[in-house]
Design a binder for these strands. Structure first.
Lengths: 219, 219
DNA sequence: GTCTATAGGCTGATAGAC
DNA sequence: GTCTATCAGCCTATAGAC
C-alpha cells in the first residue's frame, strides 16, 4: 500500500518543501508573527485548507522552521571547528556564531529568542537525530575547545568546562540578542563587543591563584 | 478652562492609573500578546471604547508599561549602589539586575526582549526625564563602579569603561534572557552562571600585560 | 463619560463539492 | 488534491445614542 503511492509521496514531499521554504521566507522577513496560513497559502498559489494536508497546523510549521534554523547555525559555525589552535578555534566558533545571528536576525530571533513552545525539544539531552541535535553538537564544539585548553594548561585543571561553555555561549548571546532588539543600546559595534567579551572571558580563565568556574561545579 | 476641570482631571488620572495597573498585570501574567483592549476593558468593568479616552491605543499603553518597567529595574538595583567597595558594588549591581529579571520574567521580557517598537526611545541619550532615563542611570552606576576600579588601579588605566559596562550588561543579560526562554538549556542554575560570568569577566579585567577593552576603544 | 453597536480587519481550522 | 465556503473566534478602533 505504501509502495503504491511512492510517486505521489514524492510529489507530496515536494509541495511540503515548498510550503516550508515559503513559510521560512515569511518568518525571516516579518518575524514569526507574520506567518499566517492564509497568506502562506496565497503565496504558493493554493487554498488555505491545503496546508493542513501537509502540516497539522501553524505550530508544526514553526517547529520545523526552528529545526532548520538550528541546523543552519551548526553549519555556520562548523568550519571554525577546523582551526587547530584551541584559542583561535574558540574565538572563531563564537565569532561565527555571532555573525550568524547578525546575518540572519529573524532566524536567530525565532530560534533563540522566541517562546520555547516551538523549540524546547531542541535542548533536551535525549535529542539524537541529525537536525535536532544541532544545538548539542554546537555546544560540544565549545566544550571540546575548552577541554583542550585545560589539557595544555591554559585554563585551570579544576575548571568546569561545561559551565564555562554555557557562560561563553550566554555571553555572546547576550551581545547579539541585545543588539538585535536595541540596535542603539550597546552603542559599540557588535564585533567589538563580541571581541571584548571573548577576550575578557578567556583572559579571566587563564590559570591564576583561583580556579575560575570551579565554584559549585558539581551540580 | 483647564482650571475648571481640575477635579475631573483628577478622576481621569485615577481611572487612567487603574487601566495601566490592570494592563500591567495582564502583561506580567500572559505576556505582551495577552494584552487586549477588550479584555482589559472587561476587567476594569468598562466598555472597550472608553479605553481610548485615556490612551491613543494599545501601543501607547504598552509603551507606558515599558517606562514603568525600566523605572522598576532601576529601583531594584539602586540599593546595590550604596556598597562602598567598587568590586562588591559591581557584583551587587549585576546580581540584583539578574534577580530582577528572574523575579519578574514577563516584565523583563517586555522591557528587554521585545520588539523595539515600544521602547526605542528609552535608550536614546537625549532621554532626560525621571523614568525615561532609568536605563541610562542604571548604566551610569556600572560605569561609575568601573571608573573607580580604574582609579584604584584594579583595571587598566587605558580601559574603556563604557565599553566594558556594555559587555558586563550584555553578559548578564545573555544569561538571564537565555534562561527565561529556555529554562533547560544552560543546565546550570542562573545564580551560578551569573556569578561565574561576573567573576570571570572581572578576573579578565585585572591589570595584565595587555589592556582589556582597549581595543578599538575610540569609536 | 459611558454605553452599545458596529465597521472592517485579521486569524486558524474544517466540511463538503468537484 | 484542490477548491470554495464557512465556522467561530479574535482584534483595534470608531460612531453615535444616552
Amino acid at each position: 500500500m505504501k509502495k503504491m503511492i511512492a510517486r505521489k509521496e514524492g510529489e507530496k514531499a515536494k509541495l511540503k518543501a515548498k510550503i516550508l521554504e515559503t513559510a521560512r521566507e515569511m518568518v525571516i522577513r516579518e518575524g514569526f508573527d507574520g506567518l499566517s496560513i492564509r497568506r502562506l497559502a496565497e503565496k504558493i498559489g493554493y487554498a488555505p485548507g491545503n496546508i493542513y494536508l501537509y502540516f497539522a497546523g501553524r505550530d508544526e510549521i514553526a517547529r520545523e522552521i526552528c529545526r532548520q534554523s538550528y541546523a543552519e547555525m551548526l553549519l555556520a559555525i562548523e568550519p571554525a571547528a577546523k582551526v587547530k589552535d584551541p584559542v583561535g578555534r574558540l574565538k572563531a566558533l563564537l565569532k561565527s556564531y555571532a555573525d550568524f545571528a547578525e546575518g540572519r536576525p529573524e532566524t536567530y530571533k525565532l530560534a533563540f529568542m522566541q517562546d520555547p513552545k516551538f523549540n524546547e525539544v531542541m535542548f533536551r539531552q535525549t535529542a539524537i537525530d541529525e537536525e535536532t541535535g544541532a544545538v548539542q553538537k554546537a555546544f560540544r564544539l565549545i566544550v571540546d575547545a575548552l577541554d583542550e585548553l585545560k589539557q595544555v594548561g591554559k585554563i585551570d585543571k579544576r575548571a568546569n568546562t561545561n559551565l564555562l561553555a554555557e557562560v561563553l555561549w550566554a555571553g555572546v548571546h547576550g551581545v547579539v540578542s541585545l543588539k538585535l532588539i536595541y540596535p542603539a543600546f550597546p552603542a559599540t559595534p557588535t564585533s567589538t563587543l563580541v571581541g571584548t567579551m571573548i577576550r575578557t572571558l578567556l583572559n579571566g580563565l587563564r590559570v591564576e591563584r583561583r580556579a575560575p568556574g570551579s565554584g559549585r561545579s558539581d551540580r
